[in-house]
């Protein structure tokens, strides 16, 4: 059968994350469901509108497959305007995911904006397998407090012994927390040097990675999840290439030294 034919997934639940972002729980109607790892993504479709790449926001340690969708255009709006009981198409999982076997026990997780969706999978995985990990720090920044994802989950992460730092670019009256760049949290929290997982806008990725390097992280232990335009998720359509590599197959997670040498070789 053609690998372009998706599985059907019924929407089980829709939760509001921010005004333009929803968390959608899916139940795959065929087979045994999806076996995946944190950092992988799926191709999600609304029949008639098309298909686009979406990170898996849930952890494989939990039963429900979840995606976190931000309204960006036709397809994302189509997904968000669906109702409980509607059917979406799902293909995947695609991509490599975070190399947990190489990341050790002490992990820093840094998210910026909507890039935090893919990191939630990793955070909840660590929470559920807490004893396999050591010092784990989560830092996350969004534009305003209204744009912060998964607010009601931070407490649970802290209770599981993770150290959590949140910041916004622009403060307001309702916000009593940190204001400033994600990197500013690195001075305030005690971070053990180990490995790191970063996802966010390119500027944020670079400034976090550079700060981590000065703190003694090795650039082969810093993992970045990259975004590219993607159409097939199979390494065929050509949209996502960086030089000879397809981000949909060889990525989206790359070590920082590899990303740097890929981009510099162009």
């Amino acid at each position: 059968m053609s690998e372009y034919i998706p599985m059907q997934a019924e929407i089980e639940d829709i939760d509001r994350v921010t005004s333009d972002t929803y968390l959608i729980s899916l139940h795959i109607l065929e087979g045994k469901g999806l076996s995946y790892r944190p950092g992988q993504f799926i191709m999600v479709s609304v029949f008639g509108l098309g298909e686009c790449p979406i990170s898996i926001a849930s952890s494989p340690t939990r039963d429900t497959l979840q995606i976190c969708i931000r309204r960006a255009g036709r397809i994302t709006s189509g997904i968000m305007d669906s109702r409980i009981g509607d059917v979406l198409g799902v293909r995947g999982p695609c991509g490599n995911g975070f190399p947990l076997e190489r990341m050790g026990r002490d992990i820093l997780i840094a998210g910026g904006g909507s890039g935090f969706a893919t990191l939630r999978s990793l955070v909840n995985y660590i929470v559920d397998r807490r004893r396999s990990f050591g010092d784990v720090t989560v830092i996350y920044g969004a534009r305003t407090s209204q744009d912060l994802y998964f607010m009601q989950e931070y407490k649970g992460w802290q209770m599981a012994g993770l150290s959590v730092g949140i910041t916004v670019d622009v403060g307001d009256d309702s916000w009593t927390g940190n204001v400033g760049m994600v990197t500013s949290l690195l001075d305030r929290l005690e971070v053990s040097v180990g490995s790191a997982a970063i996802c966010g806008p390119p500027v944020m990725i670079n400034s976090v990675a550079n700060t981590l390097l000065t703190m003694g992280f090795s650039n082969s232990d810093i993992y970045i999840s990259l975004e590219r335009h993607m159409k097939c998720g199979l390494g065929k359509c050509g949209h996502c290439n960086i030089g000879p590599h397809h981000v949909c197959q060889d990525g989206p997670v790359f070590s920082y030294d590899r990303v740097r040498s890929l981009l510099e070789s162009l």
């Binding site: 372009y4 479709s45 029949f47 008639g48 509108l49 098309g50 298909e51 590219r228 335009h229 159409k231 097939c232 065929k236 359509c237 050509g238 949209h239 996502c240 290439n241």
Partner: peptide, 28 residues
């Protein structure tokens, strides 16, 4: 061999692929 994937038709229709080009600015 680069291509775009799109849907034609609601509620029934076809998911098609059509030639695309890395020369065009919207490609990436």
């Amino acid at each position: 061999h680069c291509f775009n994937v799109l849907d034609l038709g609601v509620p029934d229709g076809e998911r098609i692929r059509c030639a695309d080009s890395c020369i065009l600015s919207g490609f990436s």
